[in-house]
């Protein structure tokens, strides 16, 4: 496919092209993978439910630190009552989806890549083909689907924890009025713009990108232990870049 002689541009283009084709393959395999519904469920458990702890903890702390910082800055202008508004909007529109996706890439993306990569390295995928089990439908598609389903849910949980963290610091600790905190927030946050377009749509897009990169990197790993290591690293690097770049593009369309 690629040789060492190709320069970095050709190599990247080849990767992107192969990744795009792989997306089509996976999408085409999704109906067939429905026979393995339990496998998808197990993957949602593995990539989604098992990531809850880290996502909830991080969401709480992101919300808390935002509350603290905003209170500090806004008190200069006597506008501490806007803390809740800004915490909610910042988390819904940017931090929630992006940080969740980054955490997801590190927590779940790497394990997907390593798992599939090791399957590749130990010829399990070839063995499946020999047994007339389509490895794309049985291995790749359920993991991809699980990631796409799990990430928006995780993003929403992150946001809820973030707002809770902001409330904890702003109201419980720093003494912003509880009613002001909530009423300013509800007045400014819009269901359509902030929650549907902000949290859900972005998380969904990031879910597609992160899961695709993770599955693709695992599936195309060179079948060596070194190859698996590189593929895992590439998953994190490529996902992070893709998330942040896609975030900018999506924001410029949605804003």
């Amino acid at each position: 496919m690629t040789t060492r002689d190709d320069n970095v541009v050709i190599r990247s283009l080849t990767q992107i092209g192969a990744c795009g084709l792989f997306l089509l393959t996976v999408l085409a395999a999704i109906p067939r993978s429905m026979r393995h519904g339990r496998e998808t469920l197990r993957q949602i458990w593995f990539v989604g439910a098992m990531s809850l702890t880290i996502v909830m903890t991080c969401g709480l702390f992101v919300g808390m630190v935002l509350g603290l910082q905003l209170y500090d800055v806004l008190s200069i202008f006597g506008g501490t009552s806007a803390t809740g508004t800004v915490v909610a909007i910042a988390i819904y529109r940017e931090l929630g989806p992006v940080v969740t996706a980054l955490l997801f890439a590190g927590r779940a993306g790497t394990s997907i890549t390593a798992e599939i990569g090791l399957m590749r390295a130990t010829d399990q995928l070839d063995a499946m083909e020999m047994m007339a089990v389509d490895p794309v439908a049985y291995v790749a598609a359920p993991r991809f689907l699980a990631g796409v389903i799990a990430l928006p849910l995780l993003g929403v949980v992150f946001c809820a924890m973030g707002v809770f963290g902001g409330h904890l610091v702003g109201v419980t600790w720093l003494g912003i009025d509880n009613g002001t905190f909530w009423s300013n927030m509800t007045a400014a946050v819009d269901v359509h713009k902030d929650i549907i377009n902000g949290v859900l749509l972005k998380s969904f897009a990031f879910g597609i990108v992160v899961s695709l990169i993770a599955v693709f990197q695992g599936y195309t790993t060179p079948p060596t232990s070194e190859g698996v290591a590189y593929a895992t690293t590439r998953t994190v690097v490529a996902s992070s870049i893709a998330i942040l770049a896609l975030d900018f593009v999506l924001t410029s369309f949605l804003i």
Partner: peptide, 20 residues
């Protein structure tokens, strides 16, 4: 998994009703 999905939707309902 069911719990996780329910939790996700509960959080969504919370965001949509309590913070907007």
């Amino acid at each position: 998994t069911g719990l996780f999905i329910v939790l996700g939707f509960a959080a969504l309902a919370y965001l949509a009703t309590q913070t907007t």
